[in-house]
């Protein structure tokens, strides 16, 4: 009996750290702001000379919209860089077409600043990537529900990393707040391509693992570590059954 108790407590102790990875609070609701709103149809000036409106640009292919400003010393650079890397890795263009619009939300940014940015990221000749500015940036960020705040001391905007998905009709179908993994990005690309996503988890600082993780390969949600915890009792049961049999056989022979 003692051995049994010991055994169970060891098992319990292994479950505990696994579970602590699941810790979460209520989740950040700001990701839900203005979903399915039609975004403001702003006239855009794109690097390379074209002038189109946001909705016209979206008509061909739905858009992944990244809101940045060129002098940012914070999250903007990693946001664009990760977006580039993740999209390259996911390689979705055939199956779920999209284009990427990197738009400055800084009224002082000029088209040249964005041109310079595109060059820095080595994205000037990349098809499906657009860099641009607009004169109606306030209307755009209002319709997205994005609120950068100018910090006079630091001479920087205090703002979130934000990606927004825009459907071909100009509607915002999904937002991603913060720097997110490729799984979440795939969900965003699906949503602008009209794929119904019945459920998802709100982002938190600590939510790295979930009960069910989203598999970027198949696009299906695959059982993650959480499911293992559910299977564990069954495994322990069988180990116990086999263990008992081995123990009693030794005694009787």
């Amino acid at each position: 009996m003692f051995r049994l108790c010991l055994f169970t407590s060891i098992v319990m102790l292994t479950i505990l750290p696994a579970q602590s990875l699941f810790s979460q609070s209520l989740g950040d609701f700001r990701e839900e702001i203005n979903i399915y709103n039609t975004l403001y149809d702003a006239p855009l000036h794109l690097v390379g000379g074209a002038d189109v409106s946001l909705h016209e640009l979206a008509k061909d292919k739905p858009i992944i919209l990244a809101l940045v400003f060129s002098r940012c010393s914070g999250v903007c650079n990693p946001l664009v860089l990760e977006l580039k890397e993740n999209l390259r890795m996911l390689n979705l263009q055939q199956e779920l077409p999209y284009s990427v619009l990197v738009l400055s939300f800084d009224p002082w940014d000029k088209i040249e600043d964005m041109q310079y940015m595109a060059e820095r990221f080595n994205l000037t000749n990349e098809p499906d990537w657009y860099f641009g500015v607009t004169d109606s940036i306030n209307q755009v960020i209002n319709s997205v529900g994005f609120k950068p705040i100018w910090d006079e001391k630091k001479k920087q905007f205090d703002h979130d990393a934000l990606l927004a998905g825009v459907s071909t009709k100009g509607k915002m179908t999904k937002k991603l707040l913060g720097l997110r993994n490729s799984k979440d990005l795939r969900m965003l690309v699906q949503s602008i391509n009209k794929v119904f996503i019945p459920s998802y988890r709100l982002p938190t600082n600590t939510s790295i693992f979930t009960c069910f993780n989203y598999d970027p390969e198949t696009g299906k949600i695959v059982p993650g570590t959480g499911l293992l915890i559910i299977i564990m009792p069954v495994l322990i049961t069988w180990l116990t059954v086999i263990g008992i049999r081995m123990a009693v056989r030794k005694k009787t022979t």
Binding site: F29, N34, Y36, K194
Partner: peptide, 25 residues
Amino acid sequence: KDEIPSKSVNVTAGQYFFYMSYSAI
């Protein structure tokens, strides 16, 4: 599955109310 909804309604349940709004709650 293959349509984009024309309206979305955010619902947050709490003891013992339903909060419903067109914008995020």
